[in-house]
Every structure is written in C-alpha cells, then in structure tokens.
Simulated scan of single mutants.
Amino acid sequence: MGTVMKVRIPTCYDKPGTSQLVQSTQNDNLVSIVLPTVHEVDLFTCFHPVFFHIQMLWELVLLGEALVVMAPSPAESSDTVLALVSCISPLRYCSDFRPYFTIHDSEFKEYTTRTQAPPSVILGVTNPFFAKTLQHWPHIIRIGDMKQAGETVKQMKVKKLKNLKTLDSKPGVYSAYKPFLNKDEDIIKQLQKQHTEVETVDLVLKLKDKLTQAEREQLPLRPGTLTKLQAHIDSVILSLPDDLQGILHKPSTP
C-alpha cells in the first residue's frame, strides 16, 4: 500500500537543538526516525562550480562566517545554501541561514548596511542588485548554472572581493580568507573518483532495467541489438572496482 509517515511539526515551545519523537500507539508498530531535513541535496552538484575550494568553504561554515551565495535561480541558491549547512554534518550549524533572501525580507536593511559588520548568517540571493549592496560582505560565492553530470570542473583560484563589481562577474569564491588547513589534494581526487563511479553505477543500473524491459516486452529491434548493448554494459562494469562489479552483476529485478 506504500509508506505511511506520522510527522510532528515543531512548535514555538520546543527547545532549539532538540527533537521530540512522535509517540506511536500500540497498534501502530512504527519506528520513530528523526529526519534532519525533508530536502536532501546533492552536495557534489551544488559544490561543482567551486569544488576545489570545498575545504575552505567547510572551514568558513564551521567558524560561522558571514557568507553570501549568488546564484542564477532560487532553486540553485537554496540548494547551495542547504549544501553549505549540511557539509559540516554531523555537527549542527547553529547560526542563521536564508536559502532564498530577497530585497523584501525584513532584515534587508540590517544585512546591507555598511555601518556594522555582517552577522553570522548564510544568505542565498539571485537578484543582481545584491552584487553591489552586499559587496562589503567578507565571503561571496558566485554560482553559475549547475553543471550537468559528467562535466569536468576547472580549478579556479579564490578571487579578491574588489573584483566583484560588475553584474557579469564570473563564478567562483570571492574572499580574502586564508584557511587554517592545507588543501588535501588526495581527498579531492578521491571525491571526484567516487562521484564518477556512483554516476556510472547509476547509469548501468538504468540501462540494465531498460534492457530487461525490452526483452520482456519483445520490442521490435534489429537482430543482435540487445546482445551488443549487453556487451557494452559488461565492458563498462569490468572497468569498475571489484566491489561495484559484484553489485552490478546481480540480475535485474523483473
């Protein structure tokens, strides 16, 4: 019949940082699970344009620094802000964050004033107007269109804030911050490799399902087409590590 979820929405009386489990009756036979968020984002996709600065961004979020994410759409702005908040997990981000901040928000004047230092908050914006009004913020992340799966990411240096003056500024990280930790190139390479393998496994599983569907429904294909496709799939599987090969060699669910 599907999945039944019993949800408890926090109230104004709940203490921040705590969670109340949903009380179930004897007949429910349910297991209570705390979901930190109902919206999980693909961290690799969100950080793709600034992937080589992931350690510095992790450090900035961990320290509660004021951050601005400038993105071309509300969806990309929101996803990137949520990805930043999630990147320090299992630690909890205790400062404020606004996945989609606009000029109509009540804190607009407070956040854009130059008479005081920016607060500890992560803002996600799309209005080009913010490129000027938030130029005094210490750390600005400029996100272009989200990259498609399989596209390579180019390594870019951290740019100076004074270069973020025009509305057509290039994507990148604009900051004068010097990280305490040295960049670990091995970790970055491993993350890239793992993500590529995950994408390959996902693609192979989809192709195997399509192949099984074609055989089951006896689609009108040229003789030998399915055999050739299966051979290509097998060659891709053989290029993967042994543990992934074991997963992919399992028969597809009919």
Rank of each mutant, 00 (worst) to 15 (best):
Q190D: 11
L191D: 02
L191S: 03
L191T: 01
Q192K: 11
K193C: 12
Q194K: 09
T196I: 11
T196L: 10
E197Q: 13
E197N: 05
V198W: 12
V198Q: 07
E199D: 08
E199Q: 11
E199P: 00
T200F: 00
V201K: 02
V201S: 03
L203Q: 07
L203F: 07
V204S: 01
L205K: 01
K206I: 11
K206T: 12
L207M: 10
K208H: 04
T212N: 08
T212I: 03
T212P: 00
Q213L: 08
Q213C: 05
A214I: 05
R216H: 11
R216M: 13
E217K: 11
E217G: 02
Q218F: 05
L219D: 06
L219R: 13
L221I: 06
R222K: 12
R222Y: 06
P223H: 08
T225R: 10
T225F: 14
T227E: 15
T227S: 13
T227C: 09
K228M: 14
K228A: 14
K228Y: 09
L229C: 14
Q230K: 12
Q230S: 14
Q230D: 12
Q230H: 07
H232F: 15
H232N: 13
D234G: 05
S235R: 15
V236P: 00
I237T: 07
L240W: 01
L240H: 02
P241E: 10
D242C: 02
D242P: 00
D243T: 09
L244Y: 04
G246K: 02
